[in-house]
Design a protein around this nucleic acid. Structure first.
Lengths: 224, 224
DNA sequence: AGGAGCTTGTGCATTCGATCACGAAGTCGG
DNA sequence: CCGACTTCGTGATCGAATGCACAAGCTCCT
């Protein structure tokens, strides 16, 4: 998916992209079992909770290191700590959200972030009517101030929830402010300098993928 | 990811899952170029617009059939029509959205849907304060009426944007109402009967994946 | 009409991810 | 202390997906 795998001396082990995408799922499942005061969990059980294959769980976790005990399973707390560390959730990342339409507000209010190592540190919008308003306990700043405000607040991760035609300009501003990871919800193709991670989520795309399988299922009866 | 590839006599060619996931991206790019009155597009250009490899574009499109002209490229209108047909966007799918928190409202107002073969036909929420209110020109119905209302309105695609603890119950109701494709935004693992497609989007997961690469990049300086 | 120049369609090699199957390593009961 | 049992870790295998390279086929110019 492009995450320029900059061969940065790779320090420890290199974790496959597919595995990285599953770590947050294991993480969530582990938080759930930890809440129920369960102390150990087997790969079988974890697989069930995460909706994947048990062998896959074991292989995925083996990339992080050897944290399981044969005959017993994984220590929930220890594994949770390890995944947190690997996902960087111990860092308290400062996040900026640009574009406070419905989606941006949904993200700003999202409870899950705070609990998972993310802190919404800045909100931006171009609409004068929105600037100065409080959303999720934080004041909305003008989009023109992204470079100044985001860099001042140490923002490292930017979320773009703007209309597509301004998304590239916003991305440029974010990068200029020192942001090095961008999550893009705008239906636009962004280009960023090397060294900046970029992920895209497109709600309409997900729906269209569903529609494809849907229309394959229902017999395409004649007559539109 | 599990779209039970029910060997339903698959009529035409079988299209690889990875290709299906890219079709909506090509679709969007094609809509853009069509708006600029361009009549033909090369695989190279389309690849650039979609952010992928040109050979991949050609191979992907070849699964749909032979719609390109060597030496020229693809006829934009024809290709658009073909992808629309394959994605089932010519069907005007009735969509129900359950849960009208910020995210649900964002989806209800999403302009892209109408233009792409989807019609929001029903809105549901369990909160009495929200029931009866108009959102995006449609009245919010009580969650208890999902089975009756959704089936009456011919809903085939359901979007779940509720808190996780009610997501499974909502999914059950949707399935009972005849919905056979579900897009789940709730951070919960759903189980649905065979024959029902299920896709999951988790905003926190996407962010955590970014955080992983982020924390790999920035040197983990000592002293947290 | 014929050849130069593009661009598609696709066989092939390679890389990546999923799954199986089994040895290694631990616990527990007697 | 030992053997039965459980569960992890991982080599090996298989299949999907990617990307290359090139033949096939179309257009346009001369």
């Amino acid at each position: 998916m492009g995450h320029d795998s900059a061969g940065t001396d790779g320090a420890s082990r290199r974790i496959p992209e597919a595995t990285v995408a599953r770590l947050p799922i294991y993480y969530r499942a582990l938080v759930d079992v930890a809440d129920r005061d369960v102390t150990t969990v087997s790969s079988d059980r974890l697989a069930e909770l995460a909706g994947v294959n048990a062998a896959k769980v074991r292989k995925d976790l083996s990339y992080l290191g050897t944290y399981g005990t044969r005959g017993v399973g994984y220590d929930v707390k220890q594994l949770l700590a390890e995944i947190s560390r690997d996902l960087g959730l111990t860092h308290d990342w400062a996040v900026a959200i640009v574009g406070l339409g419905h989606l941006g507000q949904a993200l700003a209010d999202y409870r899950g972030f705070g609990a998972r190592g993310f802190r919404v540190a800045a909100l931006f919008d171009a609409d004068p009517a929105k600037i100065g308003r409080q959303v999720g306990g934080l004041e909305v700043s003008p989009a023109a101030s992204i470079r100044a405000v985001a860099s001042e607040r140490g923002v490292r991760i930017g979320i773009i929830a703007t209309p597509p035609h301004v998304a590239q300009a916003v991305a440029d501003d974010l990068v200029a402010a020192g942001v090095s990871s961008i999550l893009n919800f705008a239906p636009a193709l962004l280009s960023v300098p090397g060294g900046v991670s970029l992920r895209k989520v497109d709600l309409a795309v997900e729906l269209q993928i569903l529609a494809f399988y849907q229309s394959r299922r229902s017999v395409p009866a004649a007559g539109g």
